[in-house]
Structure formats: structure tokens, C-alpha cells
Amino acid sequence: MKWREYVKQIAPYVPGKSIEAVKKELNLEEVHRLASNENPLGASKKALAAMQSAMMEAHLYPDAPATELREKLASLFGVLPEQVITGNGADNVISFVISAYVNESDEVLYCSPTFPAYRSSTLLMGGKPVEVPLKEGFVFDLEALKANITDKTKLVFICNPNNPTGTIVDSNALEQFIGDVPEHVTVIIDEAYIEYVQENNYETGIDFFKKGYPVITIRTFSKFYGLAGLRIGYAIASKEILEPMLRLREPFAVNRPAIAAAVAALDDKEYTERHFKMNEEGKHFLKDEMERLGFIVYPSSTNFLYVHVKRDGKKLFDELLQKGIIVRPCTGWDYNEYVRISIGTKEQNELLIETLKTIL
């Protein structure tokens, strides 16, 4: 059967190695994955209890519009429920944003390296990805993005904080950029890691939306809330902007246990405070220790670190893998001496440093 021409342009997504695969491949009893930016605490007890309860009704289709969750998010952020849309993870939300708005030859603009879904979803629709290099310090270059906007530009994606670099854009500069873009361009702010940002008075995409800017903000429950395995993301924008996305969204995009877990997770403040504190402590520990090893560690507003290891990152990945530790080499972004390392538990972080000392 002949492929669609646009599909041929999309490189296969290569996910990080799974724990199960590494155990089997290397015959290891214990494997630690510090590659996929997962929450090492797991889901909160409240979320787990809600999931288990929802599983008792697994024979029933979920509430298609995820009404309870949308109302919960709307109340949390001070928006209307009709200004919230849910999806099967943030990746799914990104795909139906692009599918709803990008025609053949339309341009989608973003800085690189960043989350690869912007490129693949654009290519699938016959659009043209326009990639602008990050500026010094691996931060989105808003001036360069603005300079690359043309009559064909349809969407601009800002991954903030950015994956894989962990860096954020100054919120005042971001608001200025959003205000300056032409009316035919829509700005999408991907905030998968926004809950980790510590900057005082930092304004988010939702804040800009509430000020009246026509932006789309995308978020997820995968990282901060520890629900990566359930696949649940959402977007907040005006009802008019969301309307074509609702036509494309699968009728039952979010499953019943995921909806229940997400609602419960939003209420578990003790869990989120504990996770935030653990992440910050782990991040500072790893940064200090890896700098002592001679690595360059970039400032991070996320649950991972972007590290210049000053050697072949893929080789270091392989050496750590043999010891049962999985990190993410950045060769897929053409940064061959860089790795992305997720913050683990205190024990996992200490094990990583001791293993790196042994290897080096």
C-alpha cells in the first residue's frame, strides 16, 4: 500500500528506552530511568484511589467532554469551562491544534531544539516547519522568531519552559512578542513544565489569555502530577479558537480513570508541595555535583537538567545504560555532547553521581 507523501517526510519518533526493555536486554535486576522527565514519586495516593474507583466502571464509556475535569480546571484558573479542552496527552492536543489550523504550505514557526511534535504534526498536514535556532543560553529567540514571520505563517509555538533545554523566556518579553505578532498568526504556548517555574510574578499563557490575547496554552498532567501513563493534557483558549479543535478531537479522548485521577490530583496539595521540594533539592544537588565533574549544567525551570558533558553523549548514555541508569542523549537534536537528565529520588540522584564518577 502506498504511503501518503507527507508521512514519508516524518522521521520515526524514537522514545527513551523503557525500564522493561533494558532489564531484558542487559539482564539487569534494577534499572533507573532518568530520561523521560517522569515524576519519581509516582501518582498521588488521592489520584490512585480515584483511579481504582473509576476502574469499577471501566465497562462504561467516559464522559466525552470530561465535564468535571474541565469545570475543575476552569475554576482553578478563573476561566470558563467552554474555554478548556482536554486530550489524550499534550501531544494529542498539539496534533489537533495543528490539524485544525494548518493548510498545505502554511508555515509553523518555532525555535530549535525543542519538542519534536511541532515539526511532525506540521509535516503531516502538508505545512512547512520553520525552525529558528535558540539564542545563546539555549533560550527562545523572540526577535528572530518575529523576523521570520511571513504572510504564510499560521502558528508560532513557544515551548516554555523549553524541552530539552529547561530554559524559560522572560514573561515581559513574551507578552511584548504576543502583542506584536500580526493578526493572522496565533501563538501557542506549550507549558508542559510550567508548574516547576519559581520566578516571582511570572506570567503564564493563561495569564495572557485572561488579559485578552488570542493565545492557546497547552498543559499536561504527565510531569508535575505524575500521571504520564494515563495520557491526559488540556488546552485553554477562547471558545472560538477551540471550536475547530473540538470537531477533530476524538469523542472519548480521555479515559474514565484518567479523568478521575486528574481531578483528584488537583486537590492533593500535600503531594504537589512534597514533589516540588524534592525536585528542587535534587536539581541543586545534581547541578553542583555534575559541575564538580567538569560538566556545564544550564539553568532549568523544569524537572530535568540539560548538560554539556564535553564528550560523546551517546557513548556516555551507553556506559550508564550498562550500569542500569537511563538518561537521554541529545543526538536526536544534533547536540552530540549534550544529555538531558531527569531529576530522580534522592537515592537515584546519588547513584547517578557515584556511577558517573566511576565511569569518568
Rank of each mutant, 00 (worst) to 15 (best):
L351T: 12
S238P: 07
K287S: 15
L34T: 04
V307R: 01
M55E: 12
V339T: 03
I206Q: 11
V22P: 12
E38V: 06
L352Y: 05
P15E: 03
E250R: 06
Y234M: 07
E104V: 14
I296P: 00
H32K: 10
M245T: 05
L69N: 06
E68S: 11
V156F: 05
I188L: 10
K223F: 00
K128Q: 12
S95C: 03
L227R: 01
D151P: 06
Q322P: 00
V254D: 04
P161Q: 04
E289H: 02
Y213N: 01
K2F: 08
N27M: 10
P65G: 05
V309D: 02
I98Y: 06
K2Y: 06
A100D: 04
D141N: 15
K283Q: 14
R274F: 03
E240D: 12
D207Y: 04
V84H: 01
E337N: 15
A74F: 04
P214L: 09
A258Q: 03
T167C: 11
E270D: 13
Y306W: 15
Y6E: 15
L227H: 03
R231D: 14
N103I: 00
Y110T: 14
F138P: 05
A117S: 15
P12F: 10
A192S: 09
L155H: 08
F285A: 02
V84G: 03
S121Y: 15
G313L: 07
E20N: 08
V169I: 14
I341M: 11
R33V: 10
N172P: 00
Y335H: 14
F96K: 10
F252E: 04
G166T: 08
N37V: 08
I218N: 12
M278V: 01
E240V: 07
M245F: 04
G126Y: 06
L242Q: 01
V93G: 08
T186H: 14
D190E: 15
V132R: 08
C111T: 12
F224G: 01
D288I: 07
V197P: 09
P182W: 08
I359N: 03
V339C: 11
I353P: 04
N39D: 07
L266T: 10
P133A: 03
H59K: 13
N172L: 13
A261L: 02
R249C: 05
E183P: 00
K210Y: 04
M1T: 07
D207R: 01
G87H: 00
I98N: 06
G233D: 06
I326Y: 03
L316R: 08
N201K: 15
R249Q: 13
D190N: 14
E347C: 01
L351N: 10
E143F: 05
A35S: 11
L60A: 07
M51Q: 11
N162I: 08
I216V: 15
N37C: 12
K72R: 13
A66D: 11
N201Q: 13
Q52N: 12
E20L: 08
L134T: 05
N148M: 09
N37Y: 09
A192W: 05
R328E: 02
L305T: 01
K223V: 02
A147K: 14
L248A: 07
K154M: 02
T122N: 10
